[in-house]
């Protein structure tokens, strides 16, 4: 790694002051797992890193709201989310997803904020959080704003965040009546990055889908919802035909890109097949 300066401010305000909207050479560092990789490969050579480790409890808490929603601080480590009883109660799909997310050592260090700000298209949590309808809370010099997760990432390693804005927390609304699951589909080894990440969250009653949120990652340039597949389900009875139509709609509408994991055509096949399977899993009550 090339030399850089490391600042360890003790408050959010100080941290924000050390970042400059016009200077990409200064960045926040949380767990550092993603940044270290980029710095070691020479992809990123910062002049200054601003550590968020000492910003205090504001960024490290997990709080359940009265309505059953939950808020997770940006500096909470993935391992702590995985073990949190509160998170498991509010959205068990998160803990399930984390089991096969990276590895134990990465989860022991990586933070939720770093995870979302990193914006690698192959990441597992963004589609899950999109399906859950989550938002990030962001603080900058101008104050605070909320951004839906699906609006956060604009491209490969690019977000809507200004260089002097920081994620402080992620809010997940109550999931009353909903079931969710995540399919991590790898095309090579089991520990590979996914060829396709597919998250579904469904509210169904009496064999009819009231509302479905379907989000895709890895196969597309950014994680996103698949509105036509969602529409193919809304208000429809749960039948093989319905699921097949949703699968087809998803495969057709997703702006798929080819990479090491497969061609566009093959990933469309994976989307069609795995969406149906994921829907079956949640609708048959075998919620994960």
């Amino acid at each position: 790694m090339s030399p850089f300066a490391l600042e360890e401010p003790a408050s959010l305000a100080e941290a924000l002051a050390l970042l400059d909207p016009d200077d990409p050479g200064a960045r926040a560092i949380a767990g550092g797992t993603a940044l270290m990789l980029m710095m070691k490969s020479g992809l990123y050579r910062p002049q200054r890193l601003v550590s968020l480790r000492r910003l205090g409890p504001a960024l490290t808490g997990i709080h359940t709201a009265a309505d059953g929603g939950i808020e997770i601080g940006a500096m909470v480590r993935l391992a702590d989310i995985e073990r949190s009883g509160k998170v498991r109660a509010a959205a068990p799909v998160i803990a399930e997803t984390l089991l096969t997310h990276s590895n134990v050592r990465v989860r022991n260090v990586a933070t939720l904020g770093g995870n979302l700000a990193h914006a690698d298209p192959h990441m597992d949590l963004p589609p899950v959080l999109i399906a859950l309808g989550a938002t990030v809370r962001v603080t900058g010099p101008a104050g605070e704003r909320s951004i839906a997760i699906e609006d956060l990432v604009t491209g490969y390693l690019e977000t809507v965040l200004a260089n002097n804005e920081l994620i402080t927390a992620v809010s997940i609304p109550p999931q009353t009546g909903r079931r969710a699951t995540y399919a991590k589909v790898t095309a090579r080894t089991a520990d590979d990055w996914p060829a396709l990440g597919l998250a579904v969250s469904v509210h169904a009653e009496d064999g009819v889908v009231r509302d479905a949120r379907i989000a895709i990652g890895a196969a597309t340039e950014t994680a996103r919802r698949l509105p036509q597949a969602e529409a193919a389900l809304a208000g429809r009875a749960v039948t093989d035909t319905t699921l097949r139509e949703a699968g087809r709609a998803a495969a057709a509408e997703a702006p798929v890109v080819a990479d090491h994991h497969g061609s566009v055509a093959y990933k469309r096949v994976l989307i069609e097949v795995h969406l149906q399977r994921a829907l079956r899993r949640v609708l048959d009550g075998a919620a994960r």
Binding site: T33, L37, N103, V106, N108
Partner: peptide, 21 residues
């Protein structure tokens, strides 16, 4: 961070010391 050859424990948690400042 993928092979684990550099594993050490930090406050009881295993980490990849190759990716840890």
């Amino acid at each position: 961070g993928l092979c684990g050859c550099c594993t050490v424990l930090v406050d009881g948690n295993a980490v990849s010391s190759c990716l840890y400042l």
